[in-house]
Design a protein around this nucleic acid. Structure first.
Length: 291
DNA sequence: GAACCGTGGAT
DNA sequence: TATCCAAGGTT
């Protein structure tokens, strides 16, 4: 008995409309799935595609990456954003080699223990790579459920227990079907039930959508503040790291000083990069990507 | 729980 | 041009 009234329609829609993404192919390894999920954190599919291909070509297994210095991962990450994810993936590779014999673990708890792997990513890898039954609650699923089930345009700013309970209540009983349902709802949110200008005419569950039935009311409540970027420490960190990425070796501090005029903010950003392990201060005063 | 952590395309 | 926001996680 399945308590999910949408699964059949969504699964059928997915069969007909799913994108042919490389990390979804049958021959993709769990490592390939893990790499894709980390790269996709807060990053659009279109920008991940070439990065994933290059990464997997260079480091087809965790052992391949574990054998390299962390700085190589940061350099390879290029401009994908949130470069600590590169560090996390490198640390994942070493943990997988040391604790799991070089194979990506299939248990949800072991996945969750990996650096940079949280509630979403652990569920996604366990589901998509190993066919297990876990609730997937990413930004796409949250938006779909907010509309179809709750009747509001957008979910809360941060995931709630209520959302998690709802997602779990909708899980099909059969693990393989549940895993399929997870990607299918995500894909529906990514292609049809989008944040702006949703394509309701193409939606397979429009007849049961609480938000549509309510007349598609606009989001009420405080505006979800956008993060200004210009002038922030993040921008400074990005510029500093770009210098190190684009250099072939260590760089003098003067090269870093050149990217930002304001010295207090510049030093703070550099110190933070060092504290995060993204930059190594060398004994001679130069700076380098981590060894 | 809020703040922080990059980057670039779309509108 | 400015804002939104994209398969989150950590502190």
């Amino acid at each position: 008995m399945n308590e999910n009234p949408y699964s059949a329609a969504v699964l059928a829609w997915y069969e007909a409309n799913a994108r042919d993404l490389p990390w979804r192919r049958a021959d993709t390894t769990p490592w390939g799935v893990l790499v894709s999920e980390v790269m996709l954190q807060q990053t659009p599919v279109a920008r991940v595609l070439p990065a994933w291909e290059a990464w997997m070509r260079r480091w087809p297994t965790p052992a391949d990456l574990a054998a390299e210095p962390a700085g190589e991962a940061v350099r390879m990450w290029n401009r994908l954003g949130y470069p600590r994810r590169a560090l996390n993936l490198h640390a994942c590779a070493r943990a997988i080699v040391e604790r799991h014999g070089g194979r990506v673990p299939d248990s949800h708890a072991d996945l969750l223990a990996l650096p940079g792997v949280g509630a979403y990513t652990s569920a996604a890898v366990a589901g998509f790579a190993f066919g297990q039954r876990h609730a997937i609650l990413d930004t796409n699923v949250r938006r779909v459920l907010a509309r179809v089930e709750t009747g509001v345009e957008y979910p809360p700013k941060t995931p709630t227990r209520s959302e998690a309970r709802l997602a779990e209540s909708l899980l099909p009983p059969e693990p393989a079907v549940a895993a399929r349902w997870g990607v299918a709802v995500m894909e529906l949110g990514a292609l049809v039930c989008t944040a702006r200008s949703p394509k309701c005419a193409e939606c397979p569950v429009i007849d049961g959508c609480a938000w549509v039935l309510a007349g598609r009311p606009a989001h009420d409540g405080p505006p979800r503040r956008g993060q200004t970027y210009a002038g922030t420490d993040r921008q400074v960190r990005g510029r500093l790291l770009a210098v190190l990425r684009d250099a072939t070796g260590p760089v003098p501090k003067s090269a870093l000083d050149a990217v930002w005029d304001e010295p207090v903010q510049r030093e703070r950003a550099l110190d933070a990069l060092v504290a995060d392990g993204l930059v190594d201060p060398l004994e001679d005063g130069d700076y380098a990507l981590p060894a």
